[in-house]
Nucleic acid binder design. Structure first.
Lengths: 215, 215
DNA sequence: GGTCCAATCATAACGGCGTTATGGATGGGA
DNA sequence: TCCCATCCATAACGCCGTTATGATTGGACC
């Protein structure tokens, strides 16, 4: 009633999906700017201009919202890695993929921590189908490895196993970097990350090349 | 007053340090058995037979208790790695150290997650001096590397950088294993962990040897 | 256009959390 | 023996996630 022309001011206007989208957006913003502990249903609802019930309508509760946010994080990580151009040099592609992966984690470190922290720590525990999302990115790496084998640059072997080794090393570095443990060594990127990735790839190559840097 | 012989029943008897020790013990027990989210000041106080104020007397609050628990976790990790015997084969020692490190994490996965989760996630954030504790274990690895270089098995280089690479790969595997992400590949220990560590060491050796397993 | 209905969310309350304030008990040092 | 600093039991405060309830509402159907 009351033929207001601009209904957007009143409560009932934005579509349901729009509220859901904004909740996720504001939540990601809060995590990025103030850390995971700053995210609460009450503060999120206030910042989004709604009430805590919206969280339950759209996500079933805070764990559901976090899971959706983590899923979005994996999707973006996947997209970021997918952006690396495929060249004739599979090894270069792998290095670029690693750089993109790490850059993504560094751009939103708290989200990355929540993505794998939710998987590890008890609260907001990830379900199996959530982990599947992270594996899309893994599948990409596997394809990089397959290309390297087909091209005769990498030794024949199980692409999944090799991809997992590569991901393990990269993830280890990203986690230690985020937790500041890696600060024990100077210039960790050049003394740890790239030498490690180079050493791994070098061992996987048909004809190993000298590492790019000190090791 | 009231010359009770066995004062242990009454409130004031156990020394202050004893209460502190028991709080840490029960807290670690709760984390191990029911996960990090099951640890609360109230439940801890009840289980320990005291009140929440004891947490504040001895640790200044829950973050302080968690920090103390994490510190103890690092100390035990250090002790566990320190147990690996030093042989004439530096590479064998490194493999044994990795096995001990991983075994320790698997024996109390939630504590390991809290140790590095506290460092990464916002709540109960670790201080700089807490991280120092973790670095004792790191120092051990550095010494393993130095021995390998002195023995002429490993190429000369910065032991700290090499140790950090080794730790990065190992930590990456442990974290992915705890979060169940590594389940994408079968038999991850034999297809990911050991091949990865072997590939790394192989690249670091003066005269590389064939890896022990497929990779 | 009127009616109904399922979805959405504002409000308020519940139990649990970490923390703080307060004060009683206690045991070692003067 | 007295005294006082330490320790902790109790209770309250303001958060939290969650739930119950009901008002509002926009679309479907006639």
């Amino acid at each position: 009633m009351a033929g207001r022309v601009d209904q957007t001011v009143a409560g009932r206007s934005a579509s349901s999906a729009e509220v859901r989208r904004r909740l996720l957006e504001v939540a990601a913003h809060m995590v990025r700017d103030q850390g995971p502990s700053a995210l609460s249903a009450r503060k999120l609802a206030t910042a989004t201009g709604t009430s805590t019930m919206a969280v339950y309508t759209h996500f079933g509760g805070m764990p559901g919202l976090v899971r959706a946010m983590v899923g979005e994080g994996f999707r973006r990580l996947f997209a970021r890695v997918a952006e690396v151009p495929i060249t004739e040099d599979p090894l270069l592609d792998l290095r670029n993929a690693a750089a993109a992966y790490r850059a993504h984690a560094q751009a939103d470190p708290d989200l990355y921590a929540v993505m794998f922290g939710s998987a590890t720590l008890g609260d907001y525990r990830l379900h199996y189908e959530d982990r599947i999302l992270g594996l899309d990115a893994f599948e990409q790496i596997k394809q990089f490895m397959e290309r390297g084998m087909v091209a005769g640059v990498l030794r024949e072997g199980d692409p999944a196993a090799v991809a997992a080794q590569w991901w393990t090393a990269l993830h280890g570095f990203v986690m230690l970097e985020l937790s500041k443990f890696i600060d024990v060594v100077d210039d960790a990127e050049d003394t740890v990350l790239w030498p490690l990735m180079d050493h791994l790839l070098s061992s996987l190559m048909v004809t190993p090349e000298a590492p790019r840097r000190d090791g």
